[in-house]
Computed example of a mutant assay.
Amino acid sequence: MPRASLTRALRLLSGKRIVDVALPLSTRPSRETRYLVSDPYLRFWLSFLGPYLPEIERGRGDLTLARIRSSWTSWRGRAIEPVVRESLRRLPSGPLPAETAVMGGYWTRTKDPEIDFVGADRTPVAKRITFVGSVKWLENRPFDTHDLGRLAVHRAQLPGADERTPLIAVARSGRLVEGVTLLGPEDLLTARRD
């Protein structure tokens, strides 16, 4: 497909809210645009079912199910990010720095670093980064020293962030380390109730 046609198609899908368009949030401009299918059910279909319909039709749904089971934790971690981001936006003042006006993520072409959540004073190019965050949505593994170390390294690579930029972790199973503000499932539900 020619580039102009692809650009036109993505613009149309974005206008109809079928595809979300995102740019990395930092104090430097970027052209590393990401396109994400908006509907989580459609994302699931496109990832696990649609490409494997011939397999399912041949009576080998067991292969599809095995693929889903082996990839589920990783897929779910990505799928929960928009839900968590929206819950963070709805939080009453307190856990997030007061000057946070927008939230996004940060990535480079090589995906190193790739940061789940970045808070800032404005978008698309921030004047000030207000926090850096990570989501760990695992049943039996809390946010630990390895996760904190990785988040701190990524913060150091984020344009506009430094060692004073607060770190926030959203974890399903708690934390084993200090030095990070922790938000759990109850915090996210509270944000959704208000």
Rank of each mutant, 00 (worst) to 15 (best):
A4G: 03
S5D: 10
L6Y: 10
T7Q: 14
R8S: 11
L10R: 10
L13W: 05
L13P: 02
I18L: 15
D20C: 02
L23A: 07
P24T: 04
S26A: 13
S26F: 08
R28E: 04
P29Q: 03
R31C: 02
F44C: 06
W45I: 12
L53E: 08
L53Q: 13
I56M: 06
I56A: 01
R58E: 07
G61N: 00
L65T: 06
I68C: 09
W72E: 07
W75R: 15
R76K: 12
I80D: 12
I80F: 05
S87W: 00
P95I: 07
E99Y: 08
T100E: 03
T100D: 04
Y106T: 03
W107A: 03
T110V: 04
P113D: 01
P113N: 07
I115F: 00
G119M: 00
V125F: 01
A126K: 09
R128S: 05
R128E: 00
G133F: 00
S134Q: 13
S134R: 10
K136A: 02
L138D: 08
P142R: 07
F143V: 05
D144M: 11
T145Q: 13
D147E: 11
D147I: 02
L151D: 00
A152T: 15
V153E: 14
A156L: 05
Q157K: 06
Q157P: 03
P159H: 11
A161L: 01
D162I: 01
G174T: 15
V177W: 15
E178G: 15
E186F: 10
R193V: 02
